[in-house]
Design a protein around this nucleic acid. Structure first.
Lengths: 134, 134
DNA sequence: CATTAATTGAGACTTTATCTCAATAGTGTA
DNA sequence: TACACTATTGAGATAAAGTCTCAATTAATG
């Protein structure tokens, strides 16, 4: 249950490996999977890519999108908490800037005696382009 | 990209293997993972368990919970569309009977030109038991 | 009973991610 | 600058979760 390979909550040293990864993440157009990112950086080991991605998530410097079916995609930035619209046809991902789910989740939480730590909301459907193609 | 092993949208024959799986699902107290279910049924192959689970999801006879971190748990029933409260301490999962997210997601969708097909919402936090233990 | 197609089992395979551990390389201090 | 300390890395093993293949079985139909 406990990981020996402790994942860093923050970076304590700046390294060229991480610079390489960060640059690739920042420059990436749109969303990417861990595998795509790793594949684009043959000089960096997969483990380092995953470690960096994990650390960045904790610091909310990247946002994570759970695509229906279980795949995970990332994007640099996103800034504050937000959600996504995922097109089931073309895979496009749009950010939903405002999170209306906060007030909603608070209401639910008090009704069930829960203290909410976080929530996960993604909307799946068809973007304006794809829905006209049927 | 295309699956050769076509997953059934509905069952066309009734078999004893499926009866065994169904009984186990129905009798399972609380939520279970595919692996737990399969492990409890040594006479049934893993593939059949996964196939049955997939088919049941399409018919909404079981509900699927995405636990934070990426694991998936299931439960028989649930009936109509709903969401979950997941306790990050003890793992307890509570159903949220009403889905207030529908109207919310419609609003978002029209704002972004999307047609919504489905959505995924889970709340994570601490149940009334666990939050007093800090 | 014979035919036909759905279903199954077993195990190989895939994908995504984590772990191990020795080697490497930042950083603060002497 | 050199040293010591420890964070970080790479490479490959391993793990978790699920899918695929395909031959064998078996339910349903006539």
């Amino acid at each position: 249950m406990n990981s020996k390979d402790e994942r860093p909550t923050k970076f304590r040293r700046s390294t060229s490996t991480r610079d390489t990864i960060m640059k690739a993440i920042i420059d990436w157009p749109g969303h990417f999977s861990a595998e795509e990112l790793s594949g684009s950086l043959p000089s960096v080991s997969r483990a380092s890519v995953f470690r960096t991605l994990a650390a960045l998530q904790e610091s909310t410097l990247i946002c994570r999108v759970l695509v229906d079916g279980g795949t995970t995609r990332y994007r640099f930035g996103g800034g504050q908490h937000h959600h996504h619209l995922v097109c089931l046809e073309c895979g496009e991902i749009q950010d939903i800037p405002d999170c209306d789910a906060d007030e909603f989740s608070r209401r639910i939480a008090s009704r069930h005696g829960y203290t909410i730590a976080s929530h996960q909301l993604e909307l799946y459907g068809y973007c304006s382009n794809c829905k006209t193609l049927d």
